[in-house]
Design a protein around this nucleic acid. Sequence first.
DNA 1: TACTCGATCGGA
DNA 2: CCGATCGAGTAA
Length: 185
Amino acid sequence: MSSVVKAKVWASRDTVKLARELLGRRLVARDGEGFERRLRITETEAYDGPADRACHASKGRTARTEVMFGPAGRWYVYLCYGMHQMLNLVTGPVDWPAAVLIRGVEGLTGPGRVTRALGVDGALNGQPAHAEGRLWIEERDELVLAPDVLAGPRVGVDYAGPEWAGKPWRFRWMKYWRPPVARRG
DNA sequence: TACTCGATCGGA
DNA sequence: CCGATCGAGTAA
């Protein structure tokens, strides 16, 4: 199967469904020595379209959000709070800005922790997520729904207002998801 | 050019 | 609870 065909898997109009279906698929990270880690995706969030006030692209088409308007199957990586890289998979048709934030993989809870552990940074922005390289999503012909998935509101998007912050577009595969390490009190 | 604020995290 | 830390977005 060509990369082009594989990328079409993510071109569905329904990004919320894709965020749900991404659970259970493997994220593969290859380091400088060629060592690979294959980790099940356990937590995702959907950011869907120009009307979604929590989606960066709701502010319009800019240099930063351009990649979300492009073809599906590429990485959208941006810096948050000046120190955390956020890893997203671009989804949807061309000119429909949407993406799925990868918030957790097995053994790693939290979007900033995932990228730190896998060495992800802005260099991956715009790179294909469906071809072997530095980081990719393992090929699988069919999307398989993971069982035991909990949906809830997205994290940290209250600024988007109740209509958008309240949408249950965060998905966790509870069989593999683990709560963040306890904070000290 | 000067602000403001975040799709977060770890420490107190 | 709080500070870290910096680029994008906005207003001017």
